[in-house]
Design a protein around this nucleic acid. Structure first.
Length: 687
RNA sequence: CGCGGAGUAGAGCAGUGGUAGCUCGUCAGGCUCAUAACCUGAAGGUCGUUGGUUCGAUCCCAGCCUCCGCAACCA
């Protein structure tokens, strides 16, 4: 925590790239923690603004558009809308969610660049870069391929050879070509502007290494490593036709580098909101230029350098902006043991989740927070998702609420009974959660969302234990006054739960408040036992969470298994050609054609099929280990197949095989029997 | 050997220079108001590996191995 006194908080979450939907990795890394934090601050009544938006510039969207034969604008429109809708449904409570193709952003980013340009904050440099004469474009390192100068393998990338692992520069490649279309490349001079980060080195060292030692170890460590290595000027423009034009004479065909314009999007989106509703949100400058505003960036670990070094340097260069007070960055979330990948479709997509699990936003929010990668990469598994829902949300939280309400209806006609006289045990139980507000605040202020949520869940455990120990269903037979006290306290705990979980599980908290007839969550009363007035009515309980059964989980696992298989097939490459041979060698093998007369599974064998072949020479029996590729052997009957006729007989499972049927091994490992393209006479030779 | 983060019970994760913790799972018992839910107890770990500092290391230091990021459509 900073010592400074702040009057308001501006929270940003990394701008998702408008090149695909949002997945659980994005959510766990950035949007769920940011949303929890923002909801928490709002509950405390603190002024806060939560800013998000789509990042719509850069090369990948243009490549995607070309691949799909639509315009780049159509690509970003599609994904911006999809992402925006998903966030809304999922309850990510942005005050504004805009986009970097907005007019406001183009002007603001352009002005920002121009100010730095006019103030002489950039270095201008002309270099020779590879150019494709046909498509009239300069290429990024990664889109240039050629022969590796070290190991001479083909297809090395402009920045690295994957065969020998060496780092390269495009200039070293032999016969470089365009990775997208294979065109040969020439060199052309091009001019770009650079932000001289080295000039900010000393200032950054003081600002981060001395004044922000409280940043998370992964953030601090990464910054330190960059600073220790010495910063170098970084290009802020690119040769590209998609993006924000460089607002300088003679810079036609150049745009701002996506990493320069994207973080400015935080500012533009704030401006867009404030300009539209000045009465509600005030001036945008208050959020960005007033020292009493606390700026927090929520990001993933791959974004640390840009948010801690590059963007602050830009802001510092401009001169009138505040700097981030903290940059809580998470590590990565894996999916079922493999890293999440958009290109390999290895992800749980938010829009698909919302379709597959309607009304279960809070379940995913809970699981992603309970297993948030706050200190290291963590793993998301569907089994864990199901277990946390069934064993924690349903069994602990939902069940406790249900017990308290059912008992209240059973014994007190749905009215909150009188609290009466508290026993020592009651007071001991109350003491266990009296300071829950303080504990939650301490954890949330330190961005320890996983522990904070655990603290909230602990309250439900306290409630269950309280009911188990006091046994009101027994006392109801003898002592209604005591029963009243117990149920009053149980209901107060339920009311506390609705407040404690509000930042984490907003949908369920609202549902619970509706059951309890509470109008709003008052954070300041968290920990008290007078949230529900005596005689107030509570509604008939409905289930707060429902069990998720195995079939729903299995459907997700099946989907992932299918994707994995598709990926493996797509990654398949033809095996290396064997050592040279010659016609004489080949000629020794006698390959013939024969018709399958019978084809049956060999008993007690997993793999063997027994063939009866008409070989034009009186027939023969051949065994072939392809049963797992042909679950229905009958489909082969009547087909003409190729077989080797001069192998020595060989006994398998007690049956003699007189030859070998030729099969192709498919990419998925399945065997496919070879056949002829026109009918031929049985027994003819192949060669 | 580029740099940073990480490697802890069956699984997922906390944590600290002094007898190793949480949740789930497993096993046993209790309860029966409750969504076969709840409560109590137990078993289960040479804290990646090798060496060093220390009276004492899971923690500090050094080397090594593995995974991830910086770095390619990815938070």
């Amino acid at each position: 925590m900073s010592e400074k006194q702040f009057k308001r908080t501006l929270v940003t979450s990394a701008l998702p790239y408008a090149n695909g939907p949002v997945h659980i990795g994005h959510l766990a890394g950035v949007y769920v923690p940011a949303d929890i934090y923002v909801r928490y601050l709002r509950l405390q009544g603190k002024p806060v603004l939560f800013v998000g938006g789509s990042d719509e510039h850069g090369v990948p969207v243009t490549i995607r558009a070309r691949k799909e034969g639509i315009t780049t604008q159509q690509v970003v429109d599609r994904y911006h809308n999809l992402i925006k809708d998903s966030f809304e449904q999922f309850g990510i409570s942005f005050d504004v969610y805009s986009r970097t193709t907005s007019a406001v952003h183009h002007k603001l980013a352009s002005d920002f660049f121009r100010k730095l340009y006019d103030d002489g904050k950039f270095i201008q440099q002309t270099t020779e870069q590879f150019y494709d004469e046909e498509t009239k474009e300069f290429l990024t390192d990664r889109n240039i391929r050629g022969e590796c100068p070290h190991c001479h393998s083909q297809g090395a990338y402009g920045d690295q050879c994957e065969k020998c692992g060496r780092t390269l520069s495009p200039d070293e490649l032999i016969n470089p070509y365009n990775a997208v279309n294979g065109n040969p490349l020439t060199k052309r001079a091009t001019t770009h502007w650079y932000l001289p980060l080295d000039q900010y080195q000393q200032w950054l060292e003081q600002w981060i290494l001395e004044e922000h030692k409280e940043w998370r170890p992964n953030v601090y460590g990464q910054c330190k490593s960059w600073l220790d290595g010495g910063l170098r000027p970084r290009a802020v423009t690119r040769d590209l036709n998609w993006g924000i034009p460089v607002p300088v004479e003679g810079a036609e065909g150049k745009v701002l580098y996506v990493w320069f314009d994207a973080p400015i999007g935080y500012i533009s989106n704030t401006k867009e909101l404030c300009d539209a509703q000045p009465g509600k949100f005030g001036k945008w400058e208050t959020w960005w230029k007033d020292e009493s505003t606390r700026l927090i960036h929520f990001i993933g670990k791959d974004n640390i350098v840009f948010h801690c070094i590059v963007f602050p340097s830009m802001l510092k260069a401009e001169g009138s902006y505040i700097l981030p007070d903290n940059v809580p960055s998470n590590e990565f979330l894996n999916l079922e043991g493999d890293k999440i990948s958009t290109s390999r479709n290895w992800a749980v997509w938010l829009n698909e989740y919302l379709d597959d699990f309607p009304g279960k936003q809070d379940v995913l929010r809970y699981v992603l927070t309970a297993n948030a990668p706050e200190t290291k990469d963590n793993d998301f598994t569907w089994a864990d998702f199901q277990a946390r829902n069934n064993n924690e949300l349903v069994a602990i939280y939902g069940n406790f609420v249900n017990r308290a309400l059912v008992l209240t209806h059973k014994y007190f006609e749905g009215k909150v009974p009188a609290q009466g006289v508290l026993t020592d045990y009651d007071n001991a139980t109350i003491n266990e959660f009296r300071d829950i507000k303080l504990r939650l605040e301490q954890l949330l202020d330190q961005f320890r969302f996983r522990d904070a949520q655990k603290e909230a869940m602990n309250l439900a455990r306290i409630g269950n234990k309280y009911l188990a120990d006091t046994e009101p269903w027994k006392l109801a037979k003898t002592d209604m006054q005591r029963t009243a006290t117990i149920l009053n306290l149980a209901l107060q705990i339920a009311a506390n739960l609705s407040i404690a979980f509000e930042p984490f599980l907003p949908f369920s908290s609202e549902k619970l408040r509706n059951m309890l007839n509470l109008t709003n969550a008052d954070w300041n009363r968290l920990g008290n036992t007078d949230l529900l007035a005596e005689s107030a009515t509570v509604n008939e309980p409905s289930l707060l969470f429902e069990k998720i059964d195995d079939s729903a989980i299995q459907a997700q696992l099946d989907r992932l298994a299918r994707i994995k298989k598709e990926n493996e097939a797509a990654a398949w490459q033809a095996p290396q050609v064997k050592a040279p041979t010659c016609i004489e060698e080949f000629d020794k093998t006698d390959i013939r054609v024969g018709t399958v007369l019978e084809c049956t599974k060999v008993k007690k064998s997993d793999k063997l099929l027994q063939f009866k072949i008409d070989d034009g020479m009186g027939g023969r029996t051949i065994l072939s280990g392809i049963a797992q590729s042909y679950p229905d052997p009958q489909e082969l009957v009547g087909k003409q197949v190729l077989f080797i006729a001069n192998f020595p007989p060989r006994k398998m499972m007690g049956i003699e095989s007189q030859g070998m049927i030729l099969s192709a091994v498919n990419a998925d490992g399945k065997l496919v029997v070879t056949t002829v393209s026109k009918p031929v006479r049985n027994g003819v030779q192949v060669g």
